[in-house]
Amino acid sequence: MLRREDVAHVARLARLTLSDEELDLFTDQLAQVLEHASDVAALDLEGVEATAHPFGLVNVVRADEPQPSLDRDEVLAMAPDVEDGRFAVPRILGEDQ
């Protein structure tokens, strides 16, 4: 059964802030979808292969040949904040992965 704290945990993972009302509403709505999906969850599919992709292509590769990159001004023009040719962000708490 989906609990309110599960929804809060998932919201943190997904970097979304939910108000108390949204948390209640989403808990309720997601529980309904999961309830509908319980038919799938309940199936005995031991031994059935998982299919993540509809077609069995393999070894799709490209040659190691340089292609033009984008113009830097055009790239940086998209950015909310830029400094010194780079994308600027507020301080990073925590550490490198």
């Binding site: 994308f87 507020p90 301080r91 990073i92």
Partner: peptide, 8 residues
């Protein structure tokens, strides 16, 4: 640090 700059 106050701020970080990213080069891709």
């Amino acid at each position: 640090a106050d701020r970080s700059l990213v080069d891709y």
